[in-house]
């Protein structure tokens, strides 16, 4: 199935055309032939089988173990760092400001109370 099958029942100029086409591909320059060879090798390289990657399973397991270990080690440490910050937040609520304002407004009463206590003690 190529151009060399020139049929006798077709016009002579067509046979001559195909002959000229055959001639044109016969005399390709070295650079073109080299590039064709490289193209062919590139195409064929796609088909070569890759060696079975037996190391992938142990490597994956080791990575998973390392990540698990890192999470286990890091998690308690992280928790101990965050816990102390919870106490001031609990104490420092909106009531403290209200309480101190109330204290200053009733300062005279507390002074009298203090004086009464001292008088009682003495």
């Amino acid at each position: 199935m190529n151009g060399n099958q020139h049929s006798n029942d077709r016009p002579a100029w067509i046979n001559r055309s195909t002959q000229l086409l055959d001639d044109s591909v016969r005399d390709l320059d070295a650079v073109t032939l080299s590039r064709l060879n490289r193209a062919r090798q590139t195409a064929l390289a796609q088909q070569r089988p890759h060696a079975p990657r037996v190391w992938l399973l142990p490597a994956g397991l080791a990575s998973a173990c390392a990540m698990l270990l890192a999470v286990v080690v890091w998690q308690p440490h992280h928790r101990s760092e965050t816990q102390p910050s919870a106490a001031p937040v609990a104490v420092d609520d909106g009531d403290s400001e209200e309480t101190s304002t109330e204290f200053y407004q009733n300062l005279e009463f507390y002074a009298w109370l203090d004086a009464q206590n001292k008088g009682g003690d003495g």
Partner: peptide
């Protein structure tokens, strides 16, 4: 080209 040259 396919009919006359390649001979399909």
């Amino acid at each position: 080209l396919l009919r006359m040259w390649e001979g399909f």
